[in-house]
Design a protein around this nucleic acid. Structure first.
Lengths: 210, 210
DNA sequence: ATATTTGTCCTAATGTTATTAGGAAAAATA
DNA sequence: TATTTTTCCTAATAACATTAGGACAAATAT
């Protein structure tokens, strides 16, 4: 009844090989232009064998970002742990996220460029996790209101929209331009402008530290 | 040599019929799931006849937003004509753009959800026109700096990124949520936050009127 | 008016690609 | 050693984009 480890490992290993091949090809050539034959060749398998691991091309497309985003979600907790103040948390969030994108551009490309067009996107686990990732921001803005860092009449959801919209825009352009420059260029200036939008007018900046 | 009007008209009419059919089906079912047979049936033609009008499915996909965006570009000049001050222009830009999206949601859906995934997108006329559309914002921010409305050290390109990112985010979510609410909900609050990011600190708000 | 060219459309291929059938070989288990 | 399960393959099948080749009619030329 107990499964043999080596078998398990090799099965898992093959699965990972397929995922990596698909990731590479999707992000290089796009989803449509990548064929199942391409992917299976790259992974060293026949087409049919691939169907033992994935239900089909679409399933494969959805699996890739699923892994990435759920990993991000788990990491975020760790990253924000111990950071004091809403503005500091926001800053960490932005730098952390762009770093993760920089480190996994293939995953990011699939999420940003190919996923939204998929009719099932809204029903996927990825979408749910992306929402959770963004929901953190709402908590941060609410915290900022409580401690006086942020405007008292700030709508946290709208603040989130502005923050996420800007972040997504930066990432999307970087991906479309083939990652030909640093994501962190001018990021300080961008962040300062965003904070100016959210910050309380007469912010006694040390208030929340007491 | 001179062409008959009725013939010309019927040719043009058929072309438009095909475009409208494709627009409807692409935005309802997505690009991938829409077949050439679907489109040609909807337009009352055979598949082969469609190829007299368009080079193929991809050409059809690119033609639709091309028409829309170039129309937008032309309209924008008119809309901003006579509006005084950078903040007022920004406001008009935002309201105008979202209105146009509201009025042509099928075109918007194609631009926002299906176009970016296309490998040729960066080389299309649509992309060039979208860039021009967004470049207007840079002019507006520069004007705002000259007349003291905007922060003197504002980087106009970054301000544009924030503005466009927020706008695109609002539109994208609205499209993904099947246009089930008004694009203008909370728009005032959103706009005020954005302006707070860009505005000069001690803005003597009437300066630029002199 | 008749012949010829051009424009519009069709049915029937063709070729690519995702997916499935059916079974062989190997590995695990009894 | 026999049997079941896993993993993989070759060879269909089916959906679809695109093309061939020609019919028919409208426009134009003679």
């Amino acid at each position: 009844m107990a499964k043999n480890n080596s078998k398990n490992n090799s099965k898992e290993h093959t699965r990972i090989r397929i995922i990596n091949s698909a990731k590479k090809l999707f992000s290089e050539q796009g989803y449509q232009k990548t064929t199942i034959v391409d992917i299976s060749k790259q992974a060293g398998l026949s087409e049919a064998a691939l169907y033992e691991y994935f239900q089909g091309k679409e399933d494969l497309l959805l699996t890739i970002p699923d892994l990435w985003v759920s990993e991000l979600l788990h990491d975020l907790d760790e990253q924000l742990f111990g950071i004091q103040g809403a503005v500091n948390k926001l800053r960490k969030y932005l730098w952390w996220y762009l770093r993760r994108v920089e480190q996994a551009p293939l995953d990011a490309k699939i999420v940003y460029l190919f996923l939204k067009t998929n009719a099932n996107f809204l029903n996927t686990e990825v979408y749910a996790n992306v929402k959770r990732l963004y929901a953190y921001l709402i908590d941060i803005f609410e915290e900022g209101q409580k401690n006086g860092e942020m405007k008292p009449d700030l709508n946290p959801r709208i603040a989130r929209d502005i923050f996420v919209g800007t972040m997504d825009h930066i990432v999307t352009r970087w991906l479309l331009k083939d990652m030909s420059y640093s994501l962190f260029d001018n990021l300080d200036h961008t962040f300062n402008l965003l904070v100016a939008a959210f910050k309380a007018e007469q912010s006694n900046s040390a208030d929340y530290l007491n």
